[in-house]
Design a protein around this nucleic acid. Sequence first.
DNA 1: GCCGTTTTCGGCCCGACTGTTTTCAGTCG
Length: 565
Amino acid sequence: MNQDIADILNEMADILEMQGVQWKPNAYKKAARELESLETDFREIYNKDGISGLKNLPGIGEHIANKIEEYIKTGKIKAYEKLKKSIPNGVGELLRIPSLGPKKVWQLVKKAKIHSLKDLKKAIKQGKIKNLKGFGEKSQSEISKGVSMIEAGSGKNPIYRVLPLALEIKKNIEKVKGVKKVEIAGSLRRMKEVVGDIDILVTSDYPEKVMDVFTKMDGVSRILAKGSTKSAVMFSSIQADVRVLKPEVFGAALQYFTGSKEHNVAVRKIAIKKGYKLSEYGLFERTGKLIAAKDEEIIYKRLGMSYVPPQLRELSGELEAAMKNKIPKLVELNEINGDLHMHTKASDGMHSIAEMAKAAKEKKYEYIAITDHSKSEHIANGLDEKRLSKHLEEIAKTKVSGLKIFRGSEVDILKNGDLDYDNKTLKQLDIVIASIHSGFKSSKEAMTKRICSALQNPYVKILAHPTGRVVLRRNPYEVNLDKVFAAAKERGIALEINCPRLDLRDIYVKKAVESGCKLVINTDSHSTDQLNLMQYGVGIAQRGWAQSKNIINTLPLKQFEKWLK
DNA sequence: GCCGTTTTCGGCCCGACTGTTTTCAGTCG
């Protein structure tokens, strides 16, 4: 796994930085980032092109390439082992504490013999930290708070918990007198599936009023800071920051606070190359003359590229594309015309067919598919042929005006690659979703073969969670994506982007799009409220560069029915 | 340690904030 080697390089960077080594840490971090974002396994590159293949990767030169080769050949890197020995064992965890960076950690190690979180807690209790040179009363209490935070495990939150809160804050601020613009920034604007905190940017004639309303909102558990233009509060475990800005710098600030950090660093480098300087206050000439700040779009334009949608700002090829004017228009939530994966009380859902249909109608969908589990899925009360037959009649009887309800099933892919119903049964269905729910422990090759074999069935229309590394709670499995994509493409089967689970990494969707596969954004809803998960699926699709033409359920009903045939 | 239409040597993103200083280093976003 690329992550393994990236972790090692990152750790080497941390240790070097602690010891005050200049520049080298940056090089290691950059190399680690490159490996993390790599689509192909580094071993594959090495097997194909040897050490020069590694050296061709940006940020990886002779020395790091040699170390990677050493790792491939021996499973170890001598320089890394040596570095690890130069610091005590538990120091790594100290680096995760907010307000403690490599330099301060190293001070603690050297001057106070603090080698672990445990040592640190003891030293805080004894009041030793504040007496160290470079530390003081305040630092000690900050560190103490940081330790509690780490121990509480707080940090990152899933987007489906954070976005509703952010929208609520936005709504509240929009109502304040004098407010002109309110935008959500940060990783939330990029629609990352896991986000740190909420960042909201505002322009207003009366900043103080905004701060008052924000800090007094329902659900605020603690006010971390309240100033005239910037405040931070906690909503239980979620931190939210609001900044009021001058309208003339709003675009530059929005660009800056949206990130990602990697994207911003790269954009700034481009600015420098063009003889400019970019900060959150705008794009400037070397002379200090302001060129652009009001609008994000203009900043990108002045840097010689097209606008980069927030969801793509991960430094994964978006800048190259923007410079060539090749950024696609991404799929939008309002383009989704149907949800094709829904469960009802018949298997493991909570609501009836009619209730699900009504909720879908409220979403203004043109069509849905009811897709309960098949017979082998005993835990989920899967339907045998007899119950299925009755269930299909029920679906046919359910009428909601203006909504087409397809009769479907989420059919298990059995261990041998066969489907859970025979073809005679499958023939009665409008839509068959094939998916794996058991036997996760097979090898990558076996899983791939099993899925590809199921895809040969003429009735399969959709493959559920095709990502290869799906964490179905405790059941990760791996497949050869290229083979699965090829099989799906050949048979015109749509690959599902499964929304309720945070298991899709951007790369899978991007790869599927690039391979020419059709995708479908379904919610796998087990209750009416889960239909709201569609927006997160759209977010995942957007981050994977998907356009509406890639997504099968953006088709209007008539065209969708054609695709079904 | 990496990299190069300003460089094979000398750079490496920028600015605010904080706490500790007595002019600045470290951390953060």
